[in-house]
C-alpha cells in the first residue's frame, strides 16, 4: 500500500495554538483536518509536509449558525453536516445539491468545508457553491482576522489567499430575502470529480432578478466567476431564454482543458447546459415553484 513520507505530528488545542505552530514551523507545516485531500497526495508523495498540525479537536471551528444578516460556517464543519443542515438547506439549498454529489457518503463523514476550499481544486464543488452565494472567507493569522471575498480567495490552481502562518476559520454568507440557489454537476460516475459543474444563486425582487451569482467548477484552472453572465441577468425578469443566454456566456467565458473526462467543446457545452439548469432551478426555488 502507498504510505506517506515521515513527518512530525502535533495536535492543536486552540486556533491560536495552531496559528502559532504554523508561524513557528514555516512552510514545511500543513494543517490537517479531514485529510481526504491531503493524505492521498502524501501517499503519492506529491505532498511531503514536514509537520502536520491536526485541528480535528477544535470544536469551536465546527458550526453552522445564523449571526445577524449572515450565515456562518466554521471551517471544520464536515460535508455530512453541511448536507444534513436544515438551516443551510432552507437558506441555500445548493449546498445540499452539491453535498449529495461530493465524493461519497463515507468520505463526506470526514472531509471539511475548510479543507475543500483550501485544496482549491478547480473541480471541487464547494468553491463554485461559495462563489455563487457570494461567501466571504475569514482568514486568521497571528495579527488577527481578515475577510476576503471568494473572487479573491482562489488565486490559482491549488493556491488560495491563505498565506503562510494563516488558516481559514470561517465562511460567511450574507443572508438576503428572495433568494434561491442550485448546484448542477455532470460526472462520469457517482463520486467522481465533475466533468463540469455550475452553481447559481438568484435573489428576486418584484419579479426581477435583483442580484445573482453564477460560478463554474472544473472548466478552468480555478473556479470561474461568471461576472458577464451576472451582469446580463441583473435587473431582468427571469426566463428560460435569458438563462440560455447566460449559458452561452458560460460556454464562452470558461477555459476548460481536455482530459480523461472530456474534450474542450464538450465541457464548454456542459458549462452552458448546467448554467442554464442551475439558474432555472435556483429561480424556481426563489419563487417557491420548484417541481
Amino acid at each position: 500500500m502507498q504510505t506517506p513520507a515521515s513527518f512530525e505530528y502535533e495536535r492543536a488545542t486552540s486556533v491560536e495554538g495552531a496559528i502559532a505552530s504554523l508561524q513557528r514551523l514555516g512552510s514545511g507545516a500543513r494543517i490537517i483536518a479531514g485529510g481526504h485531500s491531503l493524505l492521498p497526495m502524501m501517499k503519492l508523495r506529491l505532498a511531503n509536509p514536514e509537520h502536520l498540525i491536526d485541528i480535528n479537536d477544535l470544536a469551536e471551528l465546527s458550526y453552522i449558525r445564523e449571526q445577524g444578516d449572515e450565515l456562518s460556517i466554521g471551517a471544520l464543519t464536515r460535508h455530512v453536516e453541511l448536507e444534513k443542515s436544515e438551516l443551510l438547506a432552507r437558506h441555500f439549498p445548493l449546498f445540499r445539491d452539491a453535498e449529495n454529489v461530493i465524493a461519497d457518503p463515507v468520505v463526506r463523514n470526514r472531509g471539511t468545508i475548510g479543507g475543500s476550499l483550501c485544496q482549491a481544486d478547480a473541480a471541487e464543488d464547494l468553491s463554485a457553491v461559495c462563489s455563487a452565494v457570494k461567501a466571504k472567507a475569514v482568514i486568521r493569522g497571528a495579527g488577527g482576522e481578515r475577510v476576503v471575498g471568494m473572487e479573491d480567495f482562489h488565486i490559482g490552481p491549488y493556491v488560495t489567499a491563505v498565506g503562510e502562518g494563516e488558516m481559514l476559520t470561517e465562511v460567511r454568507i450574507p443572508l438576503r430575502p428572495g433568494g434561491g440557489s442550485a448546484h448542477e454537476k455532470v460526472e462520469r460516475r457517482a463520486g467522481d470529480w465533475a466533468i463540469a459543474a455550475a452553481s447559481a444563486a438568484v435573489w428576486i425582487e418584484g419579479g426581477k432578478i435583483a442580484d445573482v451569482g453564477v460560478a463554474l467548477g472544473a472548466v478552468g484552472p480555478t473556479t470561474i466567476h461568471l461576472s458577464r453572465a451576472e451582469e446580463l441577468l441583473r435587473g431582468k425578469a427571469p426566463s428560460e431564454g435569458l438563462f440560455a443566454q447566460a449559458g452561452e456566456i458560460a460556454s464562452a467565458d470558461c477555459s476548460p482543458s481536455a482530459d480523461g473526462r472530456g474534450p474542450i467543446d464538450y465541457k464548454r457545452h456542459l458549462a452552458s447546459v448546467l448554467t442554464t439548469r442551475a439558474l432555472s432551478r435556483a429561480t424556481a426555488r426563489a419563487l417557491h415553484q420548484e417541481a
Binding site: 455532470v186 462520469r188 466533468i195 473526462r261 472530456g262 474534450p263 464538450y266 457545452h269
Partner: peptide, 8 residues
Amino acid sequence: CTPARVWA
C-alpha cells in the same frame, strides 16, 4: 460510452 463520447 462515457458522457463525453456519447455527446460526441
